[in-house]
């Protein structure tokens, strides 16, 4: 019982924070709402009893990704002389229309489909040993490719952002 109440509270928090990300009028506030939203999704993973993914979420999203975003905000913020720019374009109503249609479709599909093999209410705990076995045995090759991808992205980011003498 208490689990359901907590779930609804956390889910409402996640939705509210995500709405804050796309609606807020300050970039800094949007970033902070994003942190809240990502942490909330991490808490939702706890309800699914996969604490490994929840901790990965906190570590990668809560720590690294949002910090990168905040750092970029600090580096790209207009000073006192800069002109204030509108954060939302004139196309926003159409975007809202598309998003609403998409949401209706997705929710309709999610609710109407009878998912095969649904175990019912309580999810089964997936131990970290099983995740490790799946990651390194069944999906070993994609894992290594992923490592290479990260390395390439890392080098690429340095090359793109590096300050050259002419800049």
């Amino acid at each position: 019982m208490i689990t359901e109440v907590l779930w609804w509270i956390v889910a409402a928090g996640v939705v509210g924070a995500s709405a804050g990300v796309v609606l807020s009028r300050s970039v800094v506030h949007a970033a902070i709402f994003l942190i809240l939203s990502l942490a909330g999704v991490g808490a939702i993973y706890l309800f699914l009893t996969v604490e490994f993914i929840a901790l990965v979420q906190f570590l990668i999203y809560g720590g690294a990704v949002t910090v990168l975003i905040l750092l970029a905000l600090m580096l790209t913020r207009m000073g006192a002389s800069g002109r204030p720019e509108p954060l939302t374009g004139a196309q926003a109503p159409f975007g809202a229309l598309v998003a609403a249609a998409l949401m209706a479709t997705l929710i309709g599909v999610a609710v109407a489909t009878a998912w095969p093999g649904d175990l019912g209410g309580s999810p089964t705990a997936i131990s970290i040993e099983r995740i490790g076995a799946a990651l390194f045995q069944n999906y070993g090759a994609p894992f290594i490719i992923m490592a290479a991808l990260l390395l390439v992205a890392f080098v690429g980011a340095i090359v793109i952002a590096r300050q050259e003498d002419g800049d």
């Binding site: 570590l59 809560g62 720590g63």
Partner: peptide, 25 residues
């Protein structure tokens, strides 16, 4: 916790958020 060590450094990563908020705010 069974994942205690992972928990410690996952949560400590969140420490930066408050510092950044202080700097930006």
């Amino acid at each position: 916790l069974a994942l205690g060590m992972f928990f410690v450094f996952a949560v400590l990563g969140l420490n930066i958020v408050g510092v950044l908020m202080a700097g930006l705010g």
